[in-house]
Amino acid sequence: MSVDTQTVKKIAFLSHLKIDDDKIDTVGAEFNKIISWVEQLNEANTDNVEPLVSVNDTKLTLRKDEVVEGNQADKILKNAPAAEYDYFVVPKVVE
C-alpha cells in the first residue's frame, strides 16, 4: 500500500505536527518505506486468532468511590506556561 502526499498531510494534521512543504516528499518516501516494511505482517496467518488486548489476562480492579485528591490548584498549575486566576490560559479556541 502506497501512502500519498495527501495522506501524509492528513496524518501530520491529525498528529498536530507541521511538515514543511519542501520536506513533505522526503517524509512521504520514508513513511512509505516503513509502511511497506511492516506489511510483512500480511504473511502471517491470523485466521481465527483473537487480538491480544491484555497480556496477563488481568481483569480490571475497581477503586472505592472516595475523594482522596483535590484542593491542589497550586500543584496542578505549578508548571503551567500561562495561568491567571487559577485557570490555565491558552490562545483562544476557534471553532
Binding site: V3, I11, S15, L17, F31, I34, I35, T46, V49, P51
Partner: peptide, 28 residues
C-alpha cells in the same frame, strides 16, 4: 516519526490492516 506511524495505523480504514493485525500477531 513514530507519532505519525502510530496515527496512521490507527486511522480510519487502516486500523484492521495494521493495528488489529499486529494485535493478532502479538497473540501468535
Amino acid at each position: 516519526r513514530r507519532i505519525m506511524i502510530g496515527t496512521y495505523v490507527l486511522s480510519a480504514g487502516y486500523y484492521d490492516a495494521y493495528y488489529l493485525k499486529a494485535q493478532k500477531v502479538r497473540r501468535l
